[in-house]
Design a protein around this nucleic acid. Structure first.
Ligand code: SF4
Ligand code: SF4
Lengths: 149, 149
DNA sequence: CTGATGTCCGACCGAACCAGTCCAGTTTAC
DNA sequence: GTAAACTGGACTGGTTCGGTCGGACATCAG
């Protein structure tokens, strides 16, 4: 129901950790796993996927680890989600996949795709650099209270 | 990921069908199922959930069927999704559910919740009445670029 | 009033998907 | 050479989701 996967969740967690300025710009999978109490092997696989997606750079060897492949401000959350879970699609169908049985008779495709574009836009508007700002000091005049309609 | 369930998809399809102006304002589950070639029983269950959610009104008996409980313009897609799949949550945690193991150490909750609010806002901006407008005539002056933030 | 009909309703089940695990292999620093 | 770290694949258990079944209820013919 429009919920992002746990893996994507962990990915954002790790990216945020790497984005926050500190003495070291890199960290090993083990360090990250211990910092947040999550299964090391799973986190490792997530990080590998991020490397494959071009968001992280990896360094093998005994002093190895992971680091951001580009500035944190240039990594959006859509990038992360797509690197982990594949292309973002709100519906089961897409421009390149007409496999839905109701495709010909369906008349809500276009509006929903438009909606998808809007969601993607909202997700691309936030970068991991913004995630790294701690305690979000209300950069906007509108706090959390702008909920629903 | 971030994909809506097939049931929610069917729900929107059915609601759109009921929202389009025509001779009858109601339709039976069987009619709808045949119109769109989808499993009748499943569609029936979806409709039941919508009734429970207060979006549809049902009429039993030999001339029974389903009808909109309120004007189409007052039914947003979030209403539909929440009626089908429960409350919208982007993350596994929420204001009322701290069951995530990383809850105390997590530092991306607030930004993600804000993101959720923004998505919900985008989803509440569209009503089923807008879905009923066929063939979306104009690409509208403001395409996808109304990122809003 | 009564039976037949067609509808809604709730419980049930199998399949797909996802979080999590394991292990064998490769690369690099010391 | 050895230890620490990344890489890649295959495997499993649990949960959710799509789909199916029989029963309850309201309407209408007679
Ligand atoms: S029902 Fe329509 S919108 Fe949904 S997956 Fe099928 S074609 Fe796409
Ligand atoms: S990791 Fe953080 S954001 Fe994700 S579910 Fe847990 S507490 Fe929520």
């Amino acid at each position: 129901m429009l919920r992002l996967s746990k893996k994507a969740d962990y990915a954002l967690l790790a990216l945020r950790h790497l984005a926050v300025p500190g003495p070291r710009a890199t960290a090993s999978a083990r360090e990250l796993a211990e910092s947040y109490d999550l299964p090391p092997e799973l986190l490792a696989k997530v990080l590998q996927q991020l490397v494959r997606g071009g968001l992280l750079s990896s360094q093998q060897g005994i002093r190895g680890g992971y680091g951001l492949a580009r500035p944190a401000a240039e990594i959006t959350v859509v990038d992360v989600i797509e690197a982990i879970d594949g292309p973002m699609t709100v519906t089961a169908c897409s421009e390149s996949d007409h496999s839905c049985d109701q495709y010909t008779k369906c008349n809500i495709r276009d509006p929903l795709w438009k909606l998808k574009d809007r969601i993607v836009a909202a997700l691309s508007a936030t970068t991991v650099a913004e995630l790294a700002i701690d305690l979000v000091p209300a950069p906007e005049s509108i706090p959390v209270s702008l909920v629903r309609r």
